[in-house]
C-alpha cells in the first residue's frame, strides 16, 4: 500500500527524549486524540501546520527537528 504521506517524523524518539512522554500525555497537551498521535507517528496522517507546531512546542523541539519532508531524489 502506498504510504498516505511523505512527511516523516521523529515524534517517538523525541517523546522519549522529553522524559518518556506518553502518547496520551502528548495528545492531551496538543488537544487531539491519542489515536491521532499514533497515526501521525506511523506516518498515516499528515497534521495541519498548526498541530505540527503544537506538537513541536509540546516536545520542546523545533518544527524541523520533529518533521521532515524529502526533497526530490531523497528517499522518504
Amino acid at each position: 500500500m502506498v504510504k498516505p504521506t511523505r512527511v516523516a517524523n521523529n515524534i517517538r524518539a523525541l517523546r522519549f527524549a522529553a522524559g518518556e512522554l506518553t502518547q496520551a500525555e502528548l495528545a492531551a497537551r496538543v488537544g487531539v486524540t491519542r489515536q491521532t498521535i499514533i497515526a501521525i507517528e506511523q506516518g498515516k496522517y499528515s497534521p495541519s501546520l498548526e498541530i505540527a507546531f503544537q506538537i513541536a512546542h509540546a516536545l520542546g523541539a523545533r518544527l524541523d527537528e520533529v518533521f521532515s519532508y524529502p526533497t526530490n531524489g531523497d528517499p522518504a
Partner: peptide
C-alpha cells in the same frame, strides 16, 4: 474504516 486503518492520503 479504510481511512482510519490505512491512513489519510493528502
Amino acid at each position: 474504516i479504510a481511512l482510519y486503518r490505512g491512513g489519510v492520503p493528502a
